[in-house]
Amino acid sequence: MRDHAFSSGSLELLADVNAPGSSAAAADERTAGPLRPSGHRLAGFRSTLSEVAVEEGATPVNAVVRVVSATTGYQMVDTDGAVLGAGAPSRPQPLRLVLVSVDGQWRVSDILAVHGSG
């Protein structure tokens, strides 16, 4: 859903991904904020998650999931589809996603780097 929000310009969908007031929401807002008033979007933006594993200690209201995340390259386009710039793909990186239950739905609260791997 996050990929679709950025690639389509439907940035309101980020509320269905991130916990309200969380550091994950703030991080996505740093990207989404400049896009909102202009209607620009990140065409072709996609992320892949691999090596997904839930860490021990999960409860019905919070969990930590280890993943390896990478993103594709993308083009920033305006409302007419004109290319304004480009973003490079990211290398795969290990992360820990801190999830919380919000109204019975899992939301991302924090995204933490995994140190000392690889």
Score class of each variant (00 low, 15 high):
G85S: 11
V114T: 13
L49E: 12
M1E: 15
W106D: 05
S50P: 04
E51Y: 08
A82G: 09
S50A: 08
S69Q: 14
E12D: 15
L13H: 14
E29C: 04
V102H: 05
Y74C: 07
R36W: 13
G85P: 00
V108K: 01
A25L: 08
S117K: 15
P20F: 05
T71G: 14
T72C: 09
Q105I: 03
E29L: 11
D16V: 02
G104N: 08
G116S: 14
D78F: 07
D3A: 15
S38W: 14
T79D: 09
G87F: 04
H40G: 01
P34V: 09
E29V: 03
N62F: 03
S109C: 00
Y74W: 15
P20T: 06
P89K: 13
D103Y: 00
S47K: 12
V102M: 06
G81M: 09
R96A: 10
V67C: 06
G87Q: 02
V83M: 09
D3P: 04
S38C: 07
L11F: 13
L112V: 15
R36N: 13
G57V: 05
M76F: 02
E56L: 01
S8K: 06
L14I: 14
A15K: 11
T71Y: 06
A19Q: 13
G85K: 04
G87N: 06
L97I: 01
A24I: 07
A113P: 09
G73F: 01
R36G: 12
Y74S: 08
N18A: 15
Q105K: 11
R36L: 10
A43P: 00
P89C: 10
R107S: 04
G85H: 06
L14M: 12
G33T: 08
V67I: 15
A70W: 04
G33M: 04
P60H: 09
S117Q: 13
V54T: 09
T79Y: 04
S22I: 08
R36Q: 14
F45G: 03
G87A: 04
S23W: 09
A58Q: 02
S109E: 10
V83F: 11
M76V: 15
V54R: 08
A27Q: 15
V17D: 08
